[in-house]
Every structure is written in C-alpha cells, then in structure tokens.
C-alpha cells in the first residue's frame, strides 16, 4: 500500500500549502519596518516640492526603499484581497475577480517599477 504523494506533501486539492499564510506574514513584517520609515522620510520631504521628491526617489536609498516597500505592499494586498474574494464570492464571479486581482496587482507593480526606473535612469 502506498500513500498518495499529495497526502505526503499535505497540499490538498488546492495544490498549495501554507505558502500564502507565510508570505502574508513575511510581507507584513517587511511593511511594519518600511512603512514608518517611508512615512518619516515622506513627511520630512513634504516642503521640498517636486524637485525634492524626485531627488529623493532618484537617490539609491529612496529608490530602493520605495521599490521594496511597493513590492511588499502589492504582494501583501494581493493575498489579502484574494482571501476576501474567496470568503464572499463564489462560482464564476470568484474566478473572474481572482483573475482581476492578479492582473491589477501585476499592472500596479509594473507601473510603480516603470516610474522608479524612469526617475532613476530616464534622463
């Protein structure tokens, strides 16, 4: 008698284990550090106007902080809204909304990366 592979791995019919659970908490910890850091920097740069904001986003520290922040934020909100959709919506509408969530968060991340690349290397 053999034990099925899916039972050994404990992944169940969703083919996915605690991945989302762990990722949601890891991104939460990253955001817990970076959001206050960013807010502090942001508040300090409020009176510097357009030039100051672009100079900060164009600095290695500002660019990297914003890139990691935006990546962790989008990964976190993607999992979060997925859970909300799975809780309240069923059937075809659920599939559609899950797809929209995946595409929207991807588009948002690409837009943020595009903005940072343009500010830092766009000339």
């Amino acid at each position: 008698m053999r034990t099925a592979f899916k039972i050994v791995t404990g992944l169940g019919p969703a083919h996915d284990g605690v991945g989302h659970f762990v990722r949601q908490r890891v991104t939460a910890l990253v955001l817990l550090v970076l959001v206050p850091l960013f807010l502090f920097q942001f508040l300090a740069s409020l009176n510097t106007g357009y030039g100051g904001v672009v100079a900060w986003l164009g600095s290695p520290f500002g660019a990297l902080l914003t890139l990691v922040l935006v990546s962790a934020m989008i990964a976190h909100m993607r999992i979060g809204l997925r859970v909300v959709i799975e809780d309240y919506v069923s059937g075809g509408a659920r599939r559609l909304l899950l797809l929209l969530n995946a595409l929207t968060t991807l588009a948002l991340w690409l837009a943020a990366v595009y903005a940072l690349v343009k500010i830092n290397f766009g000339g």
Partner: peptide, 20 residues
C-alpha cells in the same frame, strides 16, 4: 481598512507615476 488600502495603493502608485 485592508480593502480601503487596496485603493490607497492606486493613489500611491499614481503619485509615483506622476512624479515620473
């Protein structure tokens, strides 16, 4: 608040893109 912040992410990204 999590769902509201999902909308907030659009505002944040719009700010970044506007700066660019």
């Amino acid at each position: 608040s999590g769902v509201a912040l999902y909308g907030g992410a659009f505002v944040f990204t719009a700010w970044l893109v506007a700066a660019a």
